[in-house]
Design a protein around this nucleic acid. Structure first.
Length: 397
DNA sequence: CCTCCACAGGAAGCGCAGGAGT
DNA sequence: ACTCCTGCGCTTCCTGTGGAGG
């Protein structure tokens, strides 16, 4: 028996782990039937050769926005048959400018576009050409708020509609920031917001149903205790109702069980998975932090271990609370150690702000008990874990 | 009560990179 | 291909502020 055989013959509680992936589109989409139907109603005019209304979809992460639109896309492609209509999905995190988006859409029609070097006017003309053959183009802009020149893009696209005799271009925008509407030019806002749709976060009960559905396909029967499902749903709905988070929790819990060669995922595994997921997230944020932020965080962690020189609560040895000034000095030392020029204290304050926004530290204004007006700093995560990863990143050991 | 401490945080400006316009 | 412009990361300078200390 080879090692591979051994691994492959090992008992597993997974049946198909890909079902748990955030990109997986299930056959039945629970609790989004209404939205699915509404979007299809809007798009159905494209199948009749008329331009559909533009649409904006809102909702926090993991509320099924992308999933629902992907589903609509599949059905649309099925239904269109010989009708001149097409649907284009674009992830605006990658294609984040008017130029790139136009290029992306048009390269399906004009192969030469693969080679760069065409001006915007050329792209625009091509777009009008394509649509003027009578084609209805539906463009899905996922994470639409990432587009740098959205006003210009909307203007270009709506304008092109006027120039075509037949055919048309319509937009489905997906965003998770409600506030992004305000940053739009009033003119493009009114044309973009012909229809608005909001995806509410899932409730605990809904999450439970969704999890059950996925579990059925992802695991062997009976692998997940119902108390585990309930807990995962409860934790998630309390946090933010992000279905992806719930799936991640279950996945992680199952991995733990698998590693320990057990056969059933219980609620304690979910609890452990939650801690692990949280740690993963903080370590990931620390790893992607710019160098100077890491140095500041290192200073905070290092001082947290040794204790503040100046700030003590009565009767305690080490409160984990630090003063802004001493952290800055420690930060300067850390910079020296890694042969980097320390930034000014003014900018160091901005670093502290950033770290707080990321939840890595908490700051409070110093009240009484401290001379002068300063900031008290406390490290969020466990200092040892932070030190380990930062030492590796900053000093290579 | 006044003064000083130890900062907070706004304003102005600088050098640079990358993108837009020509 | 070239310049021009803009945004970013940052420094320098400055005024403001709540409590400690005398």
């Amino acid at each position: 028996m080879t090692s591979f055989d051994k691994i492959l013959s090992e008992k597993t509680i997974f049946r198909d782990a890909s079902v748990l992936s955030p990109h997986y589109v299930p056959k039945d989409l629970y609790f989004r039937e209404q939205q699915l139907h509404d979007i299809m109603t809007i798009l159905s005019s494209a199948l009749k050769g008329q331009k559909p209304r533009n649409l904006i979809i809102y909702g926090k992460t993991g509320t099924g926005k992308t999933c629902t639109t992907k589903k609509v896309m599949d059905d649309f492609i099925q239904a269109k048959k010989e009708i001149r209509a097409s649907i284009h999905y674009i992830n605006c995190r990658i294609y984040n400018s008017r130029y790139r988006i136009l290029q992306r859409i048009l390269k399906d029609y004009v192969p030469e576009l693969e080679k760069a070097g065409f001006g915007l006017p050329f792209l625009y003309e091509k777009l009008v050409d394509v649509a003027s053959t009578g084609e209805q183009l539906v463009i899905i802009l996922d994470e639409i708020d990432m587009i740098k020149d959205l006003d210009d893009l909307v203007y270009t696209l709506t304008r092109s509609n006027d120039e075509m005799k037949r055919g048309g271009v319509s937009i489905i925008g997906i965003s998770n920031r409600l506030s992004f509407k305000d940053s739009l030019d009033p003119r493009s806002r009114s044309s973009l917001y012909e229809t608005e749709m909001i995806f509410q976060p899932y409730t605990a009960e809904q999450l439970r149903k969704i999890l059950e559905q996925r579990i059925h396909d992802a695991f062997v029967p009976g692998a997940i205790d119902s108390s585990a499902i309930n807990l995962a749903a409860a934790i998630t709905s309390q946090e933010n109702g992000d279905a992806r988070y719930a799936l991640k929790l279950l996945n992680k819990a199952a991995e733990i069980v698998q590693q320990e060669k057990r056969e059933k995922v219980s609620d304690t595994d979910v609890e452990a998975a939650r801690k692990k997921v949280e740690l993963d997230i903080t370590l990931e944020t620390i790893n992607t932090l710019p160098e100077m932020h890491q140095l500041v965080l290192y200073a905070v962690a290092n001082l947290t271990n040794s204790g503040s020189k100046y700030y003590r609560l009565e009767g305690t040895e080490n409160t984990g609370i630090l003063l802004s000034g001493e952290v800055y000095e420690e930060y300067e030392r850390a910079c020296k150690l890694s042969r980097k020029r320390p930034r000014s204290s003014r900018w160091y304050k901005e670093y502290l702000n950033d770290l707080e926004v990321l939840g890595l530290i908490t700051t409070t204004p110093s009240g009484k008990g401290v001379r002068g007006q300063t900031t008290l700093i406390r490290l969020g995560p466990n200092p040892e874990q932070v030190m380990t990863i930062l030492k590796k990143n900053l000093f290579g050991n």
